[in-house]
């Protein structure tokens, strides 16, 4: 479905400084699959999402490719992105639904407007029916359709935003921190619903949607992801199967292991130190300065592959 190869984004800052926000990202998301992109704030996750949607600011430059079907999202012009990609090929589930919805209009009118803009549905009655169907798909109660966004709870606002993202029948859903600020029950419900949209037969050939979920919430990722991509300092340092990553044998990159050990239901100990500046990355492994396995080898760029590390944990370590 989505095939990202060597995606890099850099920002040209005043004074000729260059900030490498994303470097050489490579991953695939298949239909009916959820890939969770995890990492701490400022590691480049959101920039990657903006790059896929063509929403980067003017001082950004990109390299590589992001093929969605036959279309390279990075090379597409704004007109193509606006008319065929956003909403139709990629549905965005936003970070803060309350801010994503128009405060002065009801959920129904926003849904109807989106239906009219993205589909061939015309006529009052047809639009009304289509909007109600869209709300139902996202489990948004029909009784709340005539409310304004500020009259909705956080969970319902999130469903309204999801309903909008689903209207265009997009085969790829992009969820950018969909659970920020929600409490645990709501996080579980929200991500379960996202998972349901991945599993149910999709609009086209019945293979289900693809979901790229960007999050710093490891518990949410564990709950629904099939695969996990860990991002550190702009690079994807580990790409792993979710069951192996969160369960046995566990992550292989030292950073991923540290991240999991920081969870309150595990060791609750932070990774020492702080991530490097994206404007001033070392030539070698960016994690070496914080890593207890680092050696002189780490001054060289880490190997490409599923684990970008010179000294990854191997399953033997886990048994020892």
């Amino acid at each position: 479905m989505l095939s990202v190869r060597g995606l890099s984004v850099r920002f040209l800052m005043p004074g000729g400084r260059r900030v490498a926000a994303v470097t050489g990202a490579r991953f695939d998301v298949a239909a009916g699959e959820c890939l969770a992109l995890i990492g701490e704030s400022g590691c480049g996750k959101s920039v990657l999402a903006s790059a896929l949607l063509g929403l980067l600011p003017g001082n950004a430059q990109t390299a590589g490719s992001a093929l969605l079907g036959d279309l390279d999202l990075l090379a597409a012009d704004e007109r193509t992105l606006a008319r065929t990609v956003r909403g139709r090929l990629i549905g965005l589930v936003p970070q803060s639904p309350a801010a994503h919805l128009t405060p002065v209009r009801t959920v129904r009118s926003q849904l109807e407007e989106t239906v009219a803009a993205l589909t061939a549905t015309r006529g009052r009655a047809a639009l009304r029916a289509a909007a109600e169907a869209a709300a139902e798909r996202a489990a948004f109660p029909a009784s709340h359709l005539d409310r304004h966004p500020h009259e909705l709870s956080g969970g319902l606002a999130q469903r309204a935003a999801t309903a909008l993202a689903l209207v265009g029948g997009a085969p790829l859903l992009l969820a950018d921190e969909p659970t920020t600020g929600l409490d645990r029950d709501l996080v579980d419900r929200t991500v379960d619903e996202l998972r349901r949209h991945v599993d149910e037969p999709g609009p086209g050939n019945g293979t289900g949607r693809a979901l790229l979920m960007i999050t710093h919430d490891l518990a949410a990722a564990e709950r629904i992801a099939d695969r996990v991509a860990v991002m550190y300092a702009g690079r994807i340092v580990e790409l792993a199967d979710a069951a192996a990553f969160f369960g046995e044998p566990g992550p292989r990159h030292p950073y991923s292991r540290g991240l999991l050990q920081a969870l309150p239901d595990r060791a609750f100990t932070p990774v020492p130190g702080m991530p490097p500046e994206l404007g001033d990355l070392p030539d070698g492994c960016a994690f070496a300065a914080r890593c207890d396995r680092a050696t002189d080898t780490c001054a060289a760029p880490p190997p490409a592959g599923t684990v970008a590390c010179h000294h990854p944990h191997v399953p033997e370590d886990a048994r020892a």
Binding site: R10, L56, G58, N59, Q61, A63
Partner: peptide, 12 residues
């Protein structure tokens, strides 16, 4: 070796 693509809108 990387080929960079700029995004700056032309109206700048």
């Amino acid at each position: 070796t990387t080929q960079w693509r700029s995004y700056g809108p032309k109206r700048r």
